[in-house]
């Protein structure tokens, strides 16, 4: 990592609390009122806003460079995850932990895929939409296989009164990505500790 990247990395880490602070402040107060205020409050609000913009740009640069450059990725993520490879034993431990982490994450991804694919609706037919001879209650199972767009918009109503309606994972994309990143790091760390306890 060159000197500029080191400075930018420190900015990402140190600037993050201010980004969170702005989000909390904007969430608690009225954002439009804050942006029209005067004096000290306005200055702080504007500074935090500029910081947010700069932080997003720097984060975008950093994450893009991590994807493109192998050397930069290793330098950044190895230090961020505190990965040690000082000798062959630690290389072996990291290898086993990476295998565990990869396989467990893959299993979770399969589960997420499966859970986001199917839809289940359990309901009751009303007198209006009930066809002669049709049963009182119904269960409808379907598949959501849409490559683009909001899947919830594509789910057709089964009619009647819906008692239970499951149409994919109740998690936002950002939450899912955050969970996967945390899981990847945590599972790796847990596996390293387990491997070390076996070898020590």
């Amino acid at each position: 990592m060159n000197r500029l990247d080191r400075v930018l990395f420190k900015y990402i880490v140190l600037g993050f609390p201010f980004v969170v602070g702005l989000m909390i402040w904007g969430g608690l107060g009225d954002a439009s009122q804050l942006s029209q205020s005067r004096g000290m409050v306005r200055n702080i609000w504007d500074s935090l806003g500029w910081n947010l913009m700069a932080w997003i740009l720097v984060s975008l640069y950093f994450t893009s460079k991590m994807v493109i450059s192998k050397r930069f990725r290793s330098a950044t993520l190895v230090s961020a995850t505190k990965m040690h490879e000082r000798d062959e034993r630690e290389v072996m431990i990291n290898g086993n932990a990476a295998k565990f982490s990869f396989l467990s994450t893959l299993a979770i991804l399969f589960l997420f895929l499966f859970m986001s694919l199917f839809t289940v609706t359990v309901g009751k037919n009303t007198d209006v939409n009930k066809v002669a001879g049709e049963k009182e209650n119904f269960i409808s199972i379907g598949l959501n296989l849409y490559p683009f767009g909001d899947k919830n918009n594509n789910v057709k109503s089964a009619g009647g009164v819906e008692l239970v309606n499951y149409s994919g994972l109740p998690l936002s994309n950002s939450m899912m990505f955050m969970f996967l990143i945390l899981w990847q790091v945590a599972s790796f760390k847990i596996a390293v500790k387990r491997e070390e306890s076996i070898l020590d």
Binding site: D87, E88, R89, E196, I198, L199, D200
Partner: peptide, 22 residues
Amino acid sequence: IEVTRATINSIEKGNYNPSLEL
């Protein structure tokens, strides 16, 4: 021999078999 103390400890206890090179 340019390894960590933990590696020597593991080798001595028989919990880790070093590579041929080590």
